[in-house]
Design a protein around this nucleic acid. Structure first.
Lengths: 109, 109
DNA sequence: AATGTGCATCGTATAATTCCGATGCATGGA
DNA sequence: TCCATGCATCGGAATTATACGATGCACATT
C-alpha cells in the first residue's frame, strides 16, 4: 500500500458512519451485508449512506457484489491488513523495539 | 482506545501534511524534532503547520515539550499502537484466522 | 531594558465534506 | 407488459476543513 492509498483508507475510516459500517461488515465476513441492512442501521438516508459506501469502495476497503436486485457489501480484510502494515512500517522501520509490544498484544487474538 | 479517539486519530493522519510529519517524528524517536524543522520541510506557512500540529496533538499522536524557546515535538508510539490495536480488533474479534496473515507479515520487523 | 526568535491564535477567504430530496436505471415479480 | 424495489447519482444547502497573513505572547540574547 502506497502513501496515497493509505491516505484514502484513513480518510474513509475517519467518519463515524463509515467506521461503524466497516466494522459491521468485518464482523459479517465472509457473508457480507446488503446495502439495505447497512442503511437501516445507520439511521441515514439511502442516498447519504450510498455516498459513504462509495468512499469506502474507492478506498478499496469495501467491495460490492450484485446479487439479483440487492448489492452485497463485503469488507476487504486484505485492505485493512495493508493499512495496518503501512502504519506498522512507520514505527518498525529500522526500530523493531518499538513494535514488539504491539506484536505481543496482537498475539492474544 | 475508544471509538471517538480512534476517529480523531484516523482523521489526524488522513492528511498528507500530517501523515508526513507524523512519520518523520516516528523516525526521529526518541529525540524528536523542533517545530521549526517540521515547518521548514513541509513547505507550508508556520501558522498553517501549527494548526496541523494541533490536530495531531489533540488526537494524542504527538506530544510537545518546551525546551527554552523551542518546542520539541515527539510522536507518541503508544497512541499509534493503540490505533493499530483498535483496527486489529475489528478483524480479530472472534475470528483469529483473519489476523494471522497480518501477524506473519508483522513478524518480519 | 530593548530586541529578535519561535510558536500559538485570530480573522477570513476558499475549498471540500456532508446531508438530503429528487430522479433515473436495472431487476424481479404480478 | 406494468409496477414495485434497491441502489446510484445529480443538484443544492449547510457545515467543516484548509490555508494564509497579521498579531500577540514568552523566552533568550544583547
Amino acid at each position: 500500500m502506497d502513501n496515497d492509498s493509505a491516505l484514502l483508507a484513513l480518510a474513509a475510516l475517519a467518519h463515524p458512519t463509515r467506521l461503524d459500517a466497516f466494522r459491521r461488515l468485518v464482523q459479517h465476513e465472509p457473508e457480507g451485508l446488503s446495502t439495505g441492512q447497512l442503511v437501516e442501521q445507520s439511521g441515514l438516508t439511502q442516498s447519504t449512506f450510498s455516498t459513504h459506501l462509495a468512499v469506502l469502495a474507492k478506498a478499496g476497503l469495501v467491495q460490492s457484489e450484485k446479487r439479483g436486485r440487492h448489492f452485497i457489501q463485503r469488507a476487504d480484510i486484505d485492505a485493512l491488513r495493508g493499512l495496518m502494515l503501512f502504519l506498522a512500517k512507520d514505527c518498525c522501520q529500522g526500530r523493531a523495539e518499538l513494535c514488539e509490544p504491539l506484536l505481543a498484544e496482537l498475539a492474544c487474538c
